[in-house]
């Protein structure tokens, strides 16, 4: 252990936090916006449409994000039409490629999380909303979605943590976020222990912060106070987010 090297890493690596957070926040936002309509289709849509959404989430969740990233970054250039199109300026750039891959990934995970939330909204609540004369869109926006979001929040916390960790893959397409900076620093100093441990500590701080933030939000939004249920929620927060999905019967 070389403390002065660790100190140097502590000075250098935080400059990668910005890019890590940018990638994480943007892809989570894009993923969330994309997943809300998809989750509604997946939960309440016609069987054929629901199955199509399932196919998307299944393929994305069943393959490593690294493969998806490389498919976009290296693979798309093989298609002549893509290279000729206006999108090439964007798709040639590693940042946009990584963002695109992460967003697609996050959307797939969030769709399944929200779908499970939507499906566990009690029937009676929806019937009550219909009885009150609310229109379908109003029911979805004012009744179903808020309840489903509250139910999905613990699982969504996992997704946020997963995305912070997943953003480290951006270092494989030359982006200099925390892991990228660490790898660069290691190749110039060849002191992997010191530098990777500092990088790990930074990630740990970020993920801990994300977990605390979701727990805070959960507590703020919770409507019932069942200590037992809270215990279960905390247990679920610990798991990676790849619950099994099955086609709608």
């Amino acid at each position: 252990m070389n403390l002065s090297l660790m100190f140097e890493a502590m000075m250098v690596l935080p400059s990668g936090i910005g890019l890590t957070l940018t990638l994480t926040v943007l892809s989570l936002t894009a993923g969330f916006l994309l997943s809300v309509p998809l989750a509604f289709v997946r939960a309440f849509g016609r069987p054929s449409l629901s199955l199509a959404v399932l196919a998307y989430t299944y393929v994305i969740r069943g393959t490593p994000m690294l493969v998806q990233l490389f498919l976009l970054y290296y693979g798309l250039g093989q298609i002549e039409a893509v290279r000729a199109s206006a999108f090439w300026v964007v798709l040639r750039d590693p940042f946009w490629c990584a963002l695109f891959a992460f967003s697609l990934n996050s959307a797939a995970h969030t769709t399944e999380i929200l779908c499970r939330g939507l499906q566990s909204v009690p029937k009676g609540v929806v019937e009550a909303a219909v009885a009150l004369g609310l229109k379908r869109l109003q029911i979805a926006r004012l009744v179903i979605f808020p309840i489903a979001f509250r139910i999905s929040l613990p699982a969504y916390g996992n997704e946020v943590v997963g995305m912070i960790k997943g953003s480290s893959l951006a270092s494989t397409v030359t982006l200099l976020e925390i892991t990228g900076m660490a790898r660069q620093l290691v190749s110039s100093t060849f002191a992997p222990y010191e530098i990777f441990i500092v990088a790990g500590a930074i990630y740990l701080a970020l993920t801990t912060l994300a977990v605390k933030a979701t727990q805070f939000l959960e507590r703020r939004l919770s409507t019932d106070d069942h200590p037992k249920r809270r215990g279960k929620v905390r247990f679920r927060l610990a798991l990676p987010n790849h619950e099994i999905t099955t086609p709608v019967p």
Partner: peptide
């Protein structure tokens, strides 16, 4: 806590 809070890639590299 540490293992679940740190990217898998970083653990592999380390």
């Amino acid at each position: 806590t540490v293992v679940r809070g740190v990217p898998e890639l970083l653990i592999i590299l380390l």
